[in-house]
Amino acid sequence: MKASLPAFIVLFWLCAAVAAPWLGLSPDTIHLQNILSHPDWHAWLGYDDLGRDILARLLSGARVSVTVAVTVTVVTFSVGTTIGLLAGYFGGWLDKLLMHSTDVFLAFPGILLAIAFAAVLGPGVGNLMLALCMTSWVSYTRLTRAQVLAIRGRQHVLAAQVLGASIPRILRQHILPLLLAPLLVEMTFSIASLIIAEASLSFLGLGIQPPAASWGAMLRDGTRYLLVAPHYVLAVGVSLMSLVLAVNMLGDSLRDSLQVKR
């Protein structure tokens, strides 16, 4: 029951993300008389610099965050794990080549490479996801490869080889299931960092374009009006932090319960 509050917070934002279009919200409706107004009964979190309802924009921004994080995670998990399986199982020059490539990607600190890719690809949510996919497959590859190296010499794998099982079958049936626990933990933490990465790129103007709402862009606008409307930054910042913190705490408890060493 320890994970109940984080689980509740994640569930809340997930529901918001899924249900946002059907909640009857009007995130793009401009109320000129309410520009940067404080919270009231109609807009619980106040209005932004164009007099739009901040709560409504937060909820539809959650949809962007969650969609980007989940999509990129699914893609990079599939690609990264496959590459790691191949590198770890076959070894030799293929392994060397692939590991050198991951070294190159890891030589760019933080989200610098994602910023660079997003910058040259141009703004937009599709390009943003592409930029994040191009840079975040590496952690799955490294993790999978390291695990496969430890597993491929085990008796049950050797037995499968001797019995003539095909390589895809060995990888899928005899190796992959043993990797799922650490990969699942990695996935949870990667979702948290992708939510931050999406917001970072949007903050720099490289993500989804206005008038669509995104948390990063809202934080940028909110910082601009910090003097007159601190509620704007606070609302978005607390939301972002709550989601990231909750996902990380879920990851922690998942790691502890699956007994994965990270």
């Binding site: 948290a192 931050i196 917001a199 970072s200 903050f203 990063g216 934080l219 940028r220 909110g222 910082t223 910090l226 601190p230 930054v233 606070l234 978005v236 910042g237 972002l240 932090m241 990231v244 913190l245 990380n248 705490m249």
Partner: peptide, 18 residues
Amino acid sequence: ALTLSAMPHFWLGPLLML
């Protein structure tokens, strides 16, 4: 440590400014 690691610079910065 847990809280700070969930605070990206573009949120912590404005908060400190505030």
